[in-house]
Design a protein around this nucleic acid. Structure first.
Length: 106
DNA sequence: CTACTGACTGAAT
DNA sequence: CATTCAGCCAGTA
């Protein structure tokens, strides 16, 4: 696969997110050296393949901003709860504890 | 080619 | 403390 650069790395990092963990657009962007381009991470998710667990990627406050883009209205939340993550009203509970920062963890 | 939008974020008001 | 503004890059009209 040709290295698309930004997008490819976003997919790579998102796939590396451990089970039951989540990360933020800003954390990924910063890890890629594109801090401030958090929107591009979200855009990358929009065109991301199905093997990318985009449901593990949320905004900085643990709010499921992208759930509206999923097939089902509550699919994203269901996937997170399926991993043991507590989600209430599109808001991830214990977000700080579940946050997985690639720049920090790696 | 220019303009607008978008799964965001941080700083300013 | 809540709301608003500007910046980021890529894709579509």
């Amino acid at each position: 696969m040709a290295d698309q650069g930004f997008f490819n790395k976003v997919y790579e990092v998102v796939r590396l997110i451990p089970f039951g963990r989540v990360t933020t657009y800003g954390a990924i962007a910063k890890y890629l050296g594109a801090a401030g381009s958090a929107r591009m991470v979200g855009w990358a998710m929009n065109v991301s393949p199905d093997d990318v667990p985009a449901h593990r990627v949320v905004n900085r406050i643990g709010l499921l901003t992208g759930k509206h883009h999923f097939k089902g209205t509550n699919l994203m939340q269901q996937l997170l709860e399926n991993e043991g993550i507590e989600v209430y009203d599109n808001q991830i509970q214990h977000f700080e504890a579940l946050l997985w920062d690639p720049q920090k963890e790696l």
